[in-house]
Design a binder for these strands. Structure first.
Lengths: 185, 185
DNA sequence: AGGTTTCGAAACCAGAGGTAGCGAAACCAG
DNA sequence: CTGGTTTCGCTACCTCTGGTTTCGAAACCT
């Protein structure tokens, strides 16, 4: 065993509070909204110091992206036909965005990215790309078609969330599936 | 002429700089992005004092919404068939959002609304409702269908804008039309 | 025990939205 | 021309947020 698992570095090890921080982030965003969920409040909710957060994530945006990655996890792409795969992926996305705090955090960090190219890059490469690649693979569609699909699905769900403050109801998610599927058959 | 046109109130009249402010707002947002387009910078670009802006608009969000209303103007709903009306409305929306500064301002104020219920109310009632009502009338569709249509079209366009920093290219706008029309036939 | 790293706490900074106070300017009525 | 009313520009100011810095204490390994 020469080096594969990287011997523990010297010094005091980091306390394993990442999960606590993610939970505190979603809870705080859910209760106070994105803008009022300050890093200080998130740290307090997690029971740690603000500086500890900034030691692990360079910016608030990076923290939120990591938190969303943790909340979403890998997209389930089971299902036989292309239609079943797409349908279940859309419903899965809608369900995740509807979980308390997730939609607000997503819309908020997305908004911040509008005027922050570095955050946009993080958002695109760390959050969008993995799902884009998985979808390209599962659906056999070219990149630009999958990007378009993501624009439609995520854009629609976030617009509803941003405009009403509530996630999209199931009937409208059904309509979204019904509208998207024929176009990608 | 008794009272219809409201006799001019006493005191110094407001200088007619609204148009100058709108132009300066779009220009500043286009050059610096939404977050760095501070009210102070917008005022400087318009050649007026920051306090003058806050005398006319209660918040930055309200200023942006008025600016967008001015930039969009009424939606053109000419065209014979329903398909023509919808198609031209979608392309008109995409074109407006693609104008320099408009898309950034739209995405920015939309983002701010995520964590600001008052701004969301302004956005919904002053910006979305007029277009929604005009579309309900022109298309003969019920409210929730038109709201869904707006979610899809505006959401998709803003997601592309927010993710890439660039407005959607014509080919993809064509795809959007092609996807939406059959669902609303 | 010594070296190394992380922790919490506090003070701190820069930039943003938004407000208050002031004298000067612009308009109208008499 | 004078007085009343309102808006103007200017400056100073407040609050909040993201983010940084500093420092002593704690945790781990050798």
């Amino acid at each position: 065993m020469t080096s594969s698992t990287a011997a523990r570095p010297p010094g005091r090890p980091r306390s394993g509070v990442n999960d606590v921080v993610f939970a505190a982030t979603l809870r705080t965003v859910h209760e106070l909204g994105y803008a009022r969920a300050t890093v200080e409040r998130i740290a307090a909710a997690a029971g740690i110091a603000k500086t500890t957060i900034y030691r692990r994530w360079p910016t608030k945006g990076a923290l939120i992206v990591d938190c969303l990655l943790d909340a979403f996890g890998p997209v389930p792409l089971e299902g036989g036909s292309r239609a079943e795969i797409m349908s279940s992926a859309i419903r899965w996305t809608a369900g995740k965005i509807g979980e308390p705090g997730v939609g607000d955090a997503f819309a908020g960090v997305f908004s911040d990215g509008v005027s922050d190219p570095e955050l946009r890059e993080i958002l695109s490469s760390r959050l969008q790309d993995p799902y884009r690649l998985a979808l390209q693979d599962a659906l056999g569609e070219p990149e630009h078609r999958v990007l378009f699909l993501i624009d439609v699905v995520v854009g629609t769900l976030l617009h509803r969330m941003g405009m009403t403050g509530e996630p999209m109801v199931d009937d409208d998610v059904d309509a979204l599936v019904e509208m998207v599927l024929p176009f990608f058959r």
